[in-house]
Write a protein that binds this DNA or RNA. Structure first.
Length: 544
RNA sequence: GGGGGUGUAACUCAGUCGGUAGAGUAACGGCCUUUUAAGCCGUGAGCCGUGGGUUCGAGUCCCACCGCCCCCA
């Protein structure tokens, strides 16, 4: 907004496309000396609706009633001529306010009726009591305009259904769709609980760079950028892994980071170019320790937060959720009911490939044959890539209940230790839930020479999804000695999807990346940057 | 990149065989002393995604483009 702009409010708003009727109301309010966006506002005694209802009994007898001040958005108005019923909605809930001409005074009441709109923010002060119909209500003695709304909010009754509007104007989605509002609350609570879980187990939260010279720690195309003063090409991180492990070298034994990773790849219902991970490293631990910790974390979160989804499903069928349902390990997602009871299933990678793809992971001809049969591309690619595709096509979609997939091929695991029993497989697991990879963990490779060889093999592949050069600094760090350790990455967005029943990652990211919309009166795509970074600005937006 | 779907009022949606652009909600004007999807009477509201084509006539049929959704590569 043009905050520096001066001049009468109505004149400023007239230059914008304010609907005429709401524009007239602004003038009316100004003429009456009522500030539409008052400064220096203080609301002594203002309570959240939820707190008020917990503190005071609306059914208290006359003379014993609480006086309350509530503030929020006008969500509904029922006009009865000489009185109004308003629904006031705040962060915590919704409460009715009753406003009478007799109480408020003729002039104030008339002005209110002439100017009040859905979406306005107001404060109401008065006694909390019940109406004849038994509805808890603030019998308003004074009402104050806190902020005027000049655009009509989306219909509360029908909600906001248009997917594009919901994503581009998330605020409108949050106003109109309570399930969306609650879902992002659930996300916050899930992250908070996950953080608490890690802290309780003695892990220290750290922040590592998002700007990397060499984007390593995963196989993905990075977003590229440039630092002007240092004349450095940089990438947004695709994973924090190599920095977190440098901290193990430095002597911290348990570290974790919750944060954003960036991968310059396609969008899908389960992929957003920026997404959140919880990544943790644990010295002197092995893969099995993470199986225990991960299982505990996910199962506990499912009981604690899946209850929201169970309640949603129950209410959809007009049933009151039974108490045992709210404490269960069952969480609904679409037409699946996912059972998070411990222990989760444990299967080996080779076993699953055999069962669902009919191939022997360690036999090339068997893999090629299966690829042919299942329509997986083979041309000019390493066997392990084909196996990986077979797993994604044939196995992953079949695993609905949480399943630890262990003994992944070492060729797919360039940063993990090989198993002591079988050098062909890594000491590694992936946790698959409802066909999605939710977590990935392994015993960390700490042999600098072995690591160098694997990096060099990656560079030799000349794959745009793999680093183009060896991260010498990381190798050097390993030379100083890294304790034996195991690490894990847990996809936060997917975790929230699973526990809230969301179908798309966009339903759990407040502001997902969307194609830039051509502005009116401009030729779209005409003089757009011809470079390979068409959406650079969407990511590198500076606050400065 | 390929295929399918979709785009109509602020919101949710109808729109038949190609023949004057519709409803509910919201808004606006009335009536109404406790309603709750308040009610009743009345009014206004549209670049039918954009551009082209076929036709006497296009929201509707055809082509291209744009956005969004889904599937596939």
């Amino acid at each position: 907004m043009a905050t520096g702009e001066r001049g009468p409010l109505t004149a400023r708003l007239a230059r914008m496309t304010v609907p005429t009727d709401r524009h007239d109301k602004l003038g009316k309010l100004q003429a009456s000396g009522v500030p539409t966006y008052p400064a220096g506002m203080s609301l002594p005694g203002r309570e959240l609706i939820q707190d008020l209802l917990a503190r005071a009994d609306p059914g208290a007898p006359e003379g014993d009633r609480a006086v309350a001040t509530i503030a929020g958005r006008v969500a509904s108005v029922r006009d009865h001529g000489n009185s109004l019923f308003l629904d006031i909605k705040d962060d915590s809930g919704r409460l009715q306010a009753f406003v009478r001409k007799k109480t408020l005074g003729e002039a104030a009441f008339v002005l209110l009726k002439e100017t009040l709109d859905l979406g306005d923010f107001v404060a109401c002060r008065g006694e909390l009591a019940r109406t004849r119909m038994g509805e808890a209500t603030v019998f308003t003695e004074s009402l104050e305009l806190l902020s005027k709304s000049t655009l009509a909010p989306p219909s509360e009754w029908y909600g906001l259904a248009d997917v594009e509007t919901r994503l581009r104007k998330r605020y409108a989605d949050l106003i109109a769709n309570p399930e969306s509002f609650e879902r992002f609350r659930a996300r916050s609570a899930i992250v908070r609980d996950a953080r608490h879980f890690m802290e309780e187990r003695g892990f220290m939260e750290v922040e590592t760079p998002m700007l990397h010279g060499i984007a390593g720690g995963a196989a993905a195309k990075p977003f590229r950028t440039h630092h002007n003063t240092l004349h450095m090409d940089l990438s947004l991180r695709i994973a924090p892994e190599l920095y977190l492990k440098r901290l193990l070298v430095g002597g911290y034994e348990r570290v974790f980071e919750i944060g954003r990773n960036f991968r310059n790849e396609g969008l899908s219902p389960r992929h957003n170019p920026e997404f959140s991970m919880l990544e943790a490293y644990w010295a002197y631990a092995r893969m099995d320790d993470w199986i225990e910790a991960c299982e505990t974390l996910v199962a506990d979160l499912a009981v604690a937060h899946g209850c929201h989804q169970r309640a949603v499903e129950a209410t959809a069928e007009d049933e009151t959720p039974a108490p045992e349902l709210l404490e269960s390990h069952l969480v609904v997602r679409g037409d699946r009911v996912i059972d998070y009871s411990r222990p989760f299933a444990r299967r080996t990678y080779a076993e699953l490939i055999q069962e669902y793809a009919g191939a022997d992971v360690f036999d090339e001809s068997s893999v090629l044959q299966a690829a042919e049969k299942h329509g997986v591309a083979t041309g000019g690619r390493g066997v392990y890539k084909i196996v990986d595709d077979l797993f994604g096509t044939c196995v992953e979609p079949q695993l609905v209940n949480p399943t630890f997939v262990t003994h992944l091929p070492i060729a797919l695991s360039p940063l993990s230790k090989a198993s002591a029993e079988d050098p062909r497989v890594a000491e590694r697991f992936e946790l698959i839930v409802d066909g999605m990879e939710l977590a990935n963990a392994f015993s960390e490779l700490n042999d600098p020479e072995d690591q160098r060889e694997r990096f060099e093999a990656q560079v030799a592949e000349r794959d745009p999804e793999l680093p183009a050069e060896v991260d010498e600094d990381y190798i050097e760090a390993l030379r100083y000695g890294m304790p034996p350790a195991a690490g894990i990455g847990i996809g936060i967005d997917r975790l929230v999807m699973l526990l809230t029943g969301a179908d798309s990652i966009r339903d759990v990211i407040l502001f997902p990346l969307l194609r830039a919309r051509a502005r009116d009166g401009e030729e779209a795509g005409d003089e757009e940057s011809p470079s390979a970074e068409p959406r650079k600005d969407a990511h590198l937006k500076s606050e400065g």
